[in-house]
Simulated scan of single mutants.
Amino acid sequence: MSRMVLVISEDEVLSLVSIKDAIEAVEEITRLQGLGRAYLLPRRRIYTGSSVLHIMAAASEDHGVSGLKAYISTRDKTNFVVLLFDNSSGELLAMIEADALGRLRTGAASAVATKYLAKESSKILGIIGSGRQARTQALGIASVLGVKEIKIYSRNPENASRMASELREKGFNAYSVGSYEEACKADVIVTVTNSKEPFLKAEWIQEGVHINLVGSNHPSRSEAYPEVFERASIVVTDSKEQAMIESGDLLAAVKANTISWDRVYELWEVVLGRISRRSWEEITVFKSHGIALWDLALASLIYRRAVSKGAGKEIPFKGYLKSLSCC
Rank of each mutant, 00 (worst) to 15 (best):
P316C: 05
E169R: 11
E120W: 03
L200Q: 11
W280Y: 10
K287F: 12
S154H: 02
K255Y: 05
K322Y: 05
L92T: 09
S220N: 04
G178C: 12
L104D: 04
S50G: 10
W268F: 15
R44Y: 11
G273H: 05
N194E: 08
T237F: 02
L32F: 01
V188Y: 07
A25R: 00
L272I: 10
R231T: 06
D11F: 01
S18N: 12
M1F: 07
I141Q: 09
A25W: 00
A25E: 01
S60D: 10
G208W: 07
A22D: 04
N194D: 10
S15T: 15
I124M: 03
I23S: 09
K119I: 04
D262W: 03
L35M: 15
I72S: 04
R305C: 05
T284G: 12
I72R: 04
L93T: 08
S51T: 13
K115E: 12
P157N: 06
V270Q: 10
G49V: 08
S143E: 07
N159R: 15
S15N: 10
A70S: 13
L32R: 14
K318R: 14
Y71K: 13
A22M: 00
E266I: 12
M4Y: 02
A108C: 09
S325P: 01
S279F: 03
V264D: 05
K309W: 02
W204E: 10
G67D: 12
N257P: 04
S308L: 07
A59F: 09
Y39F: 15
S176T: 06
F286E: 13
G248D: 03
Q242H: 14
T30H: 00
I29D: 03
L41S: 15
G131F: 09
K115A: 05
S233R: 12
A306M: 13
A202W: 08
K170P: 00
W268V: 04
